[in-house]
Amino acid sequence: MNEWIVLSAGIHSLAFALFHLAFWRLFHWRDTLQRATPVDRAVIQILNLRLTYVFAMVAALCFAFPVELHSTPLGRAVLAGMALFWVGRTVEQFVFLRINNPAIHLLTAAFVLGAVLFAWPLFA
């Protein structure tokens, strides 16, 4: 059972990696980022690419090492770290993006799902 949960966490991470790769089109960054300072424009894009890399790497770990992630101290630390990442991202959603919009609520639910998927093997 834990292997399936870890694999599901990998799918979740891969989906977020792909979602972040789509930010340029989704948010029309070619146009909207022109209003930002050159430093802000660079930082936003660099952070987005690094976050995409992290999500892809976590997905790869989940797919390649599902047993190790839930059954070794190092694996459990990775799962706990990712669960806390998603808890923090959920909290930040309420701090920085207080918009009453169905898409925002769907994203918040996806962040909570990430926290649950990564935490579940720690308690099973």
Results as ranks from 00 to 15, higher is better:
residue 53 Y to C: 13
residue 44 I to D: 03
residue 71 S to Y: 01
residue 8 S to T: 10
residue 119 A to L: 09
residue 97 L to Q: 10
residue 109 A to L: 15
residue 115 A to C: 04
residue 32 T to G: 02
residue 113 L to W: 03
residue 31 D to A: 12
residue 34 Q to D: 11
residue 5 I to T: 15
residue 23 F to R: 12
residue 60 A to P: 05
residue 95 V to F: 02
residue 67 V to G: 08
residue 11 I to M: 09
residue 70 H to E: 02
residue 45 Q to M: 08
residue 1 M to N: 09
residue 113 L to H: 00
residue 74 L to E: 09
residue 30 R to W: 14
residue 42 A to I: 05
residue 47 L to F: 13
residue 87 V to W: 05
residue 62 C to V: 08
residue 11 I to T: 11
residue 16 F to M: 06
residue 20 H to V: 07
residue 14 L to Q: 06
residue 84 L to M: 15
residue 74 L to M: 11
residue 87 V to N: 00
residue 102 P to V: 10
residue 92 E to N: 13
residue 78 V to W: 03
residue 24 W to P: 03
residue 78 V to T: 07
residue 85 F to G: 01
residue 80 A to P: 01
residue 79 L to T: 02
residue 58 V to R: 05
residue 71 S to I: 00
residue 52 T to L: 00
residue 61 L to N: 04
residue 88 G to N: 08
residue 59 A to E: 01
residue 95 V to G: 03
residue 92 E to K: 09
residue 64 A to L: 14
residue 93 Q to N: 10
residue 112 V to F: 01
residue 97 L to K: 12
residue 17 A to I: 06
residue 57 M to L: 15
residue 86 W to N: 10
residue 34 Q to W: 07
residue 21 L to H: 08
residue 31 D to E: 15
residue 80 A to K: 06
residue 14 L to F: 13
residue 47 L to N: 12
residue 23 F to D: 05
residue 50 R to A: 14
residue 28 H to Q: 15
residue 118 F to R: 03
residue 103 A to V: 12
residue 92 E to C: 11
residue 44 I to H: 06
residue 63 F to A: 15
residue 100 N to Y: 12
residue 46 I to S: 09
residue 58 V to D: 00
residue 68 E to W: 08
residue 32 T to V: 08
residue 120 W to K: 07
residue 72 T to D: 07
residue 78 V to D: 02
residue 42 A to T: 07
residue 121 P to R: 04
residue 8 S to D: 06
residue 111 F to K: 05
residue 118 F to Y: 15
residue 22 A to W: 13
residue 23 F to L: 10
residue 82 M to V: 10
residue 29 W to S: 06
residue 67 V to Q: 12
residue 106 L to P: 00
residue 102 P to H: 08
residue 79 L to H: 04
residue 32 T to Y: 04
residue 115 A to D: 04
residue 119 A to Y: 07
residue 68 E to N: 01
residue 100 N to P: 00
residue 109 A to G: 11
residue 77 A to K: 02
residue 15 A to W: 00
residue 45 Q to Y: 04
residue 37 T to S: 15
residue 60 A to C: 11
residue 83 A to I: 07
residue 79 L to C: 01
residue 103 A to D: 12
residue 24 W to G: 08
residue 70 H to P: 00
residue 68 E to C: 05
residue 53 Y to G: 12
residue 32 T to N: 13
residue 46 I to E: 05
residue 90 T to H: 07
residue 21 L to E: 09
residue 118 F to D: 01
residue 61 L to C: 10
residue 47 L to Q: 13
residue 27 F to H: 13
residue 75 G to A: 04
residue 57 M to H: 11
residue 97 L to D: 11
